[in-house]
Design a protein around this nucleic acid. Structure first.
Lengths: 342, 342
DNA sequence: TTGTATGCGTTATCAC
DNA sequence: GTGATAACGCATACAA
C-alpha cells in the first residue's frame, strides 16, 4: 500500500546538490542561490514532494499542533469553540488534535497522556464533570506544554484561562426577570463541583440581594442537567403551596425546555404566569412557542480568543504571565418566555 | 518554557543498561528479562517518561493518525460523524486531526496537503460544495494514504465510501406522503452537482412513478438550502393557481422550517392542508408545532462505520478491495407534520 | 553560497 | 536476553 515518498535527498540527487541546500530552499532561507532555489522548488513540485512534518517537527522540537480535550465534540457549545480555534489556528499553520473525555475523568487522563506523547505545543481543555483531581494537568505543565483552560476551569490551577463571566450573565438574567415583575424566582442549579455553576448561583443570589428579594430555599433545586430532570424539578416546583412565578434553568436550555413542556401541560401561561429563562442559546430556543429567553455564550468567539491567547503567549514567552484570565461577556437574549412588559 | 523531557536514554543511564532494552520493555517485547522489564517500567513511571510519538512514528513509518476534512465542524451532522469516528479510533489508539474546508475548494486542497505532510495514515473526507476537481484526492492515493469518502462523495473516484442511501430514504419519504393521501407533492431540491441531492431527487421521482402520480415541473424548485430560501420557495408554491398539498424539503430541516413558518403565516393547516417533510433530523424538528417529519441520517453510526471500515482494510491490506461502498439506511421519522391518517 | 556532520528519540537488525 | 549500530527525514552549526 504505502509507497515510498520523495524526500529532500531524492531532490538533491536529481540536481546533484546536497540535501542541506534543498532543505534551505524549501524553508525559504536566504543562504541559497536564488536560481538554485527556484530550480529546487520546481523539481520538488515535479516530484510531488511533501515535507515529512513528523521528521521536521522531531528535529525542531515542536509540533505546531494544538491538542483539545472536551467532554463531547458533538455538543453545540464545544463544536463551536473548536470551530473558532480551528479557524484561528489554521491561519498560523497549526493543526488540531481533538479528543473527547466523555465526561469521564479516567478518559480525560488518557487523552492528556496521548497529547503529551504527540508532543503537542499546547493543550486546550474544558474539564469533564466528574474530574476529581488534576495531577494530569500539572503533568502537562511539567512537560513544558502550554495549558489553556476554557469554560469549565479549575480555578486554583494557575494557567491561562478563557471563561465566560457566568456570574455577571446570571446576575443580568435574574435582574431582567425581576424587572419584568417576577418575584418568586426558582433556580435550577448545576453540580456545584463545577465552578461555572457555582458562579451562576452567585449571580442569582446577587441579583436577589440587589433588588431586596428574599432567598427562598425551597425554590433552589439541584441536579437538573437534562430535559427530563428539568421537567421533574418543575413538577415539584409548580405543585408547591406557593409555586414560583419564574424559573431560571441556569444549567442548560434543555432543562428549560423541560420546564416549558411541564408548564404547558400543567396549564401555566408562559410568560404570563410563569417566566422561563435558559442558558446556552441552543438553536431550538428560538423555535419553541413561546420562544425561550436565554444566554448566548459567544462560543465561536471564545474559540478564537483561546487560539489568539496562545499565539500571544508564544510571541512574548520571555514575560511571565502564567495565569492570565480572559473573561468573555455572555449576551442575554431576551425572547417571549420572559417578556411581560413592553 | 519547554523543559527537557526524559528519554529512553535517561532511563537506560539510570539503570546501567542500554536504550534498546528500555525500548523493548516499553513495547512489551518478550526479548527482555521479566525482572528488568518491571524495573524499567517502574523507573519510567518515576521519571514521568512519555514516549515521543513523533520519533516513534517517524521510525515506524506511520502516524496512527486519521485526518478528517469536513465543510464545518460545528454542523450537527458532521460533528456527530466525527464523534463517531473518534470513539472507534480512540479504542484502537488512533488520533484525529481535524480540518474544515469551509465549503471552499481552495481550502480543501490546503487541508489535504497539510494532512499529507502530517503523514496521516488515512484521510476521511466529505467534499465541499464548490469542489470542482479532484486532483488533490488523487494525490492522497498517490501518497499511499487510505482515502475514505463519506456522505458527499465523488462517485467516479474509486475509493472506500460510506454513504447514506439517499435515494431509498427519499423514496420512502415520498411514499409515506402519498400513503397519507397527498397527491401534489413539491420538491425542494439541492444543488445537483452534489450527488446526494441527485439521489434524493431520484427517490422522489421513483416514488411518484410507483404510485402513478404525474411529475409536475412547476412543483420542483432548486436552490433552497437555507431557511430563508425554503420560505421563499414556499411563498412561490403556495401562491400557485394549484398549490401543492405537500412539500418535501429534501435539502434540509432548516429549509423545512422555512416552509412551516410561511405555511403557518399564510394560514395553511399543517398537516391537514399541507404536509411537510424535512431531511436530517435536526434537534429542533421535534420541537416545532407541529413537529416535523424528517429523515435521520444515523450520523454517529456513520462515523463508527467509517472508522471500522478503515481498520478492516488495514487488517487485510493484501486483498484488493479498492472501492468498497457501505450504504447506511437512513430512518424515516414520522411526526405530526405529515400525519393525516392514524 | 554550499557542503559536511550531527542529532532529534525511537525502533529494527544485527551480533554476541 | 542484551548491547551496539544504523536508519527514519529533516534542520542546523560549522567549516569551507
Amino acid at each position: 500500500m504505502r509507497k515510498k515518498r520523495t524526500t529532500i535527498y531524492d531532490i538533491a540527487a536529481k540536481l546533484n546538490i546536497t540535501a542541506s541546500s534543498v532543505s534551505r530552499a524549501l524553508n525559504n532561507s536566504n543562504y541559497v542561490n536564488e536560481n538554485t532555489k527556484q530550480l529546487i522548488l520546481k523539481t520538488a513540485a515535479e516530484l510531488n514532494y511533501k515535507r515529512n512534518t513528523l521528521a521536521s517537527n522531531l528535529r525542531k522540537g515542536h509540533s505546531k499542533t494544538i491538542g483539545i480535550v472536551v467532554p463531547r465534540i458533538n455538543q453545540n457549545f464545544f463544536s463551536n469553540v473548536i470551530a473558532g480555534i480551528e479557524e484561528a489556528a489554521y491561519q498560523k499553520g497549526y493543526n488540531l488534535i481533538i479528543c473527547q473525555s466523555g465526561e469521564s475523568h479516567e478518559k480525560e487522563v488518557k487523552c492528556i497522556n496521548t497529547l503529551i506523547n504527540q508532543q503537542v505545543d499546547c493543550i486546550v481543555i474544558s474539564i469533564s464533570a466528574d474530574s476529581h483531581d488534576y495531577k494530569h494537568l500539572k503533568n502537562v505543565i511539567d512537560h513544558g506544554i502550554q495549558l489553556i483552560q476554557f469554560d469549565r476551569v479549575i480555578e486554583e490551577l494557575e494557567t491561562l484561562k478563557v471563561i465566560n463571566d457566568n456570574e455577571q450573565a446570571s446576575f443580568e438574567a435574574v435582574s431582567h426577570l425581576i424587572e419584568q415583575g417576577y418575584k418568586r424566582i426558582a433556580l435550577l442549579e448545576g453540580p456545584q463541583n463545577l465552578n461555572i455553576f457555582v458562579q451562576r448561583k452567585k449571580g442569582y443570589l446577587a441579583a436577589l440581594k440587589k433588588y431586596g428579594l428574599p432567598l427562598i430555599e425551597e425554590l433552589l433545586l439541584e441536579n437538573t442537567l437534562t430535559k427530563e430532570r428539568g421537567a421533574e424539578a418543575t413538577r415539584k416546583l409548580l405543585n408547591l403551596p406557593q409555586p414560583p412565578d419564574a424559573i431560571f434553568a441556569s444549567v442548560s436550555d434543555f432543562s428549560a425546555l423541560g420546564v416549558l413542556e411541564v408548564a404547558t401541560v400543567m396549564g401555566f401561561k408562559v410568560p404570563g404566569e410563569l417566566g422561563i429563562l435558559g442558558y446556552s442559546n441552543e438553536a431550538f430556543t428560538e423555535l419553541t412557542s413561546p420562544s425561550i429567553t436565554t444566554i448566548d455564550q459567544c462560543s465561536i468567539e471564545m474559540g478564537k480568543t483561546v487560539a489568539e491567547l496562545y499565539f500571544q503567549e508564544m510571541d512574548n514567552k520571555e514575560v511571565i504571565t502564567d495565569h492570565k484570565i480572559i473573561s468573555i461577556k455572555p449576551k442575554l437574549i431576551v425572547r417571549s418566555s420572559t417578556l411581560r412588559k413592553g
